[in-house]
């Protein structure tokens, strides 16, 4: 099976995980996202880049229906996760968010212990039958987030007492603990120093083996470093979506080129 997957990857025919068609988002009267079509592949890091206020975060929040929590936000169009419309009336956003995890811009651990932070998701979803299983999930998640070695001796210490980079990795551990299929990251490194950023980026690359990762970033270098696909948003439009290499070396749209070379944005 592994061999088969390798061949698949080499010919670049990955499964489509999320397929968005003709998505429009309105904040009250403001038309924030216009006609966005994106196909996000499995086991791929997809980066959304663009200037501030271009709608990339808004679009990201459509993918797990976090925009539902904003009263005035309205989403139109279809977004399919594994072929199922996530905006279907029968879909419970709570169930969706268990499948599509999210990491936020500012590290936001709960004011609880490190253990409880990670165990919270599995607990509310009933993923562990007993304490031992829960311990296992916590350890696995912290290992995946590359935080285990630093945190294993102080699992009962408050999560808020960690450094910024550790807090963000704790949030990633918390997100992966519920075994999501897609991981959305909204500028996960903007509050971190370069060393912590490096650690998180390394982590993102590892996460790709298990998840489809979508990352919003302000740093084009970061997009270039971690992603395979890149989408460039500008003023609510998806300007260009292609292989990261192509976007950064040979963009088709002149706006993309101006942004990448620093002339606009």
């Amino acid at each position: 099976m592994d061999d088969q997957r390798l061949t698949e990857r080499s010919v670049d025919q990955k499964e489509i995980k999320i397929s968005a068609k003709n998505v429009q988002v309105y904040y009250g009267e403001t038309h924030a996202i216009k006609d966005v079509d994106v196909e996000i592949e499995d086991n791929t890091v997809t980066a959304f880049i663009g200037p501030s206020g271009c709608g990339k975060s808004t679009f990201l929040r459509c993918l797990n229906r976090m925009n539902d929590t904003i009263d005035i936000a309205r989403v139109e169009g279809t977004i399919l996760l594994d072929g199922e419309d996530i905006y279907d009336k029968r879909v419970d956003p709570v169930q969706l968010r268990a499948k599509v995890g999210m990491v936020f811009q500012k590290p936001n651990p709960f004011p609880k212990s490190i253990y409880d932070n990670v165990a919270y998701g599995p607990r509310i979803h009933g993923m562990a039958k007993n304490r031992a299983e829960l311990d296992e999930i916590v350890e696995k998640s912290l290992r995946r987030a590359a935080l285990w070695d630093e945190a294993k001796d102080r699992l009962q210490a408050p999560g808020t007492g960690l450094s910024g980079g550790q807090q963000q990795r704790l949030c990633i551990a918390r997100a992966v603990a519920t075994e999501p299929e897609v991981l959305l990251m909204d500028e996960p490194c903007s509050a971190l120093d370069p060393i912590a950023t490096g650690q998180v980026e390394e982590l993102i690359d590892e996460l790709r083996t298990n998840y489809s990762v979508v990352i919003v970033t302000h740093s084009m270098q970061q997009a270039a470093r971690v992603s395979q696909k890149t989408a460039f948003f500008h003023l609510g439009n998806l300007v260009e979506f292609d292989e990261t290499g192509k976007i950064f070396t040979n963009p088709e749209d002149s706006r993309t080129e101006s942004y990448i070379s620093g002339r606009i944005g």
Partner: peptide, 23 residues
């Protein structure tokens, strides 16, 4: 209570009520 706490809870798939009562 900072909204980031509510977002964090919703982000891991807690229901609105769980986010309110747990956090």
């Amino acid at each position: 209570v900072p909204p980031s706490i509510r977002a964090a809870a919703l982000g891991v798939g807690a229901s609105k009520m769980q986010s309110v009562f747990h956090h």
